[in-house]
Amino acid sequence: MATEAQGAAEGGLVFHPMDQFMVKPLFGDGAVGIFTLTNVTFWMALTVLAIFGLLVLGTSGRATIPTRTQSIAELAYDFIRKMVEDVAGKDGLVFFPYIMTLFLFILFANILGLLPMAFTTTSHIAVTAVLAMLVFLTVTIVGFVKNGAGFLGLFWVSSAPLPLRPILALIEVISYFVRPVSHSIRLAGNMMAGHAVIKVFAAFAPMIVISTGIGLVVTPLSILAISTIYALEVLVACIQAYVFTILTCVYLKDALHPHH
């Protein structure tokens, strides 16, 4: 509010595309401690509620001929289950609830973040890094528990010529440890960039109030741009949830079947 007042006072446009990502306490203006109720709490709670609404309330009829909501829940179930089975294999189905949790959480956080004035929890590297590290740790632990030292065979490309193998092994090891980084930054970056761009265009939208001449051109253009990018962002929200999930399945496949 204060920044808007300042911008209006200067008589120019107000650019604060990053303000939407600020973590703020829900009540009062104090510092953000670990247990403080913040907008993160609020939007994550909404995410969990949305998941509960779709998958629990939506299927409460347990109908053989499903209602619309129930068929969406069944569609999501089938989609992820098939993905896990196809990519990670039959023995990967143990991790199905875990992967479903990741998928639904990211999907709903992304989509809820697209509501106007919303806070996108998945645009924060702290959140996505935890999600990616969870996957990384799961894959590493499962890999060693299931295969023992054989899991290291993942890095030893036995199909390559022998002299190349140590070099390839080094590259494989590096790529293995870069996985959680790319995994998390891809999601957070996509979310952040799209939302920031929308906000930048939104800042141009009130131009007509400041200067009627330029505004006649700029305001419709920026509104058109916001609509277009918003549509793109809806797509990105779903695709990024999908990408995160399928990569998790691919990594799990490595842990379950480390041999190329």
């Binding site: 973590v23 953000v32 401690g33 670990i34 247990f35 403080t36 913040t38 993160v40 709490t41 994550m44 709670a45 995410t47 969990v48 998941i51 509960f52 998958l55 629990v56 609830p97 875990y98 479903m100 949790t101 639904l104 959480f105 929890t121 924060h124 702290a126 959140v127 935890v130 999600l131 969870l134």
Partner: peptide
């Protein structure tokens, strides 16, 4: 804000996992 986010994320994930 990392501690706060990670704390609430953990709760949200555990809740989601149990619901599912």
């Amino acid at each position: 804000t990392f501690g706060n986010q990670i704390f609430w994320l953990a709760i949200a994930l555990v809740a989601t996992y149990f619901i599912l």
